[in-house]
Design a protein around this nucleic acid. Structure first.
Lengths: 278, 278
DNA sequence: AGCCATCAGTATAGGCCATATACCGTTGCC
DNA sequence: GGCAACGGTATATGGCCTATACTGATGGCT
């Protein structure tokens, strides 16, 4: 592996990009120079020493502008035209920085993921750190709900791999096999993401007037003969929200931590039983 | 609640729909007659007794055609034009059956969800049934991977509520509070969905030539100093796939059942401890 | 029997969208 | 100073969703 040493998380990158980039091995992966992978791992500031005018923007600026739009108006509002308008350039000029909109969205996702939390400083055992990791990831999704709707083919960006690494480091020495570590990491990632998605969906429905809330919908159709358990829960007020739209996020977070704690307990029992057997 | 008695899961519906539908209470929910909720719960066959030509299609036919396209070419290939082409009508005629594309997608999701599995016949305790439920849901997502990419605002369709009911019925009497039951149900739904999404993403990457596989990507950038744990796993061959592209789905399913079993074990301990305390 | 409101399907058009292509003008190196 | 590289733009193509206006068929009513 002979990539250049000077790559950076593009969180701090400032320079522009070349068509093929210069990182990576000589034999480019199938798909050629515009693969998402290469784009996400492009090098940061490239010392300019070529003819032509100086670029007026940077990849990061484009990505950040797109994220701002997505934060404000959702992922569907992110179009090349809108991003260009925000940066006060023509739509086509964006293609000097981003190979395609698909690449832009993937870069948005990785950028919005940010750096994982530092878990070494967290006091307590691995259980606490795992929970801290999950909570931090949950926080990212709450800050950028569009991430849960964005079409990202694979988690292979620098930040995403850093998150994975951070979690694996926490559960490295708790008594799991390598395969189990990967299983657990993927499970936690998937569970957090899945539940965050449900959470934001519910919150949006509770917030927007033209959408019916889950409780209302349930009340309209949950007849005891057809949905007995749901009806029982409904009658008991289990779906009544604590306080307005904001309550949705916190209540779903409760669901997440509940499941997480049970999961952790199960893992503890699992590794304890294994240690006992030898 | 005075909805008509004759509503059916539109899986078996055949008739056409009116603008406002006739189900539901008199006071329509906020958003008016074209809310997703009302559309999903529209009644089935409506006995025609009005002037005008007979409809040549049905809502179900439109939804099924759209699903066929999504199954074959992904959710992005589903456009009003493509669906119309498949049904040999003009694009605009679809709007006689479906209020908008958004409604169509929601209907696709519920239709593709299908009826939940019958879990009463499953031998064994609630643990086995929960696992059967999760596996069945997993199977749906594998059969229709586009479901994980579709923009569905809320799980309030007939089939989706039936799935939820089925799960709740299984965990109804195992010793959880109502709140915990909901937490567990949402957690399981979210985890299955989230992991299925990761699974299909990985499988697609492994299958398509223009995408780099996760293992390849990792090998390209996972330097020991920056990603020590990932590097260790990589060296140990943990990311090597068992057999080709199909192996991805099964290996991710292993991740799911691993997490699920730990979760169930934790729940068992949880309710056992509570029963002991009284 | 004949009117007519109703409704299925169509045709057209407007306003978005991503992006291929061709072009202009600027820049730094030789 | 020439020239190749490069940033930014203008234009155009083909796709998308859907509002609007229309045609023609239908069945209940008088």
């Amino acid at each position: 592996m002979a990539y250049t040493d000077g790559y950076t998380l593009y969180t701090v990158s400032v320079g522009c990009q070349r068509k093929g980039g210069t990182m990576g091995s000589e034999q480019t992966p199938p798909g050629g120079g515009s693969s998402t992978f290469e784009f996400l791992w492009r090098e940061g500031d490239r010392p300019r020493s070529s003819p032509g005018p100086r670029p007026g923007l940077s990849v990061t600026q484009v990505v950040v502008a797109a994220i701002a739009i997505a934060d404000a108006d959702g992922i569907d509002a992110v179009s090349m035209q809108q991003v260009a308008k925000r940066l006060e350039v023509t739509p086509m000029s964006l293609y000097r920085y981003v190979p395609s909109k698909k690449h832009l969205v993937e870069a948005m996702f990785d950028e919005a993921s940010g750096a994982p939390p530092g878990l070494d400083a967290v006091p307590g055992g691995w259980q606490v750190r795992v929970e801290a990791w999950v909570t931090a990831l949950w926080g990212r999704y709450q800050a950028h709900p569009w991430m849960l709707r964005a079409q990202v083919s694979q988690p292979i960006g620098p930040n995403q791999l850093a998150w994975l690494e951070a979690l694996l480091a926490v559960i490295k020495d708790i008594g799991l096999t390598y395969e189990e570590m990967v299983s657990l990491a993927l499970f936690l990632t998937g569970a957090t993401q899945g539940l965050a998605r449900i959470s934001t969906d519910l919150a949006r429905a509770a917030g927007e007037d033209d959408l019916i809330s889950f409780g209302e919908a349930l009340a309209a159709v949950a007849r005891p003969d057809r949905f007995p358990t749901l009806s029982a829960l409904l009658s008991a007020g289990t779906f009544d929200l604590p306080a307005g739209a904001a309550g949705e996020a916190t209540s779903t977070e409760t669901d997440l931590t509940f499941g997480l704690r049970q999961l952790i307990e199960g893992i503890e029992a699992h590794v304890a039983a294994r240690a006992e057997r030898g």
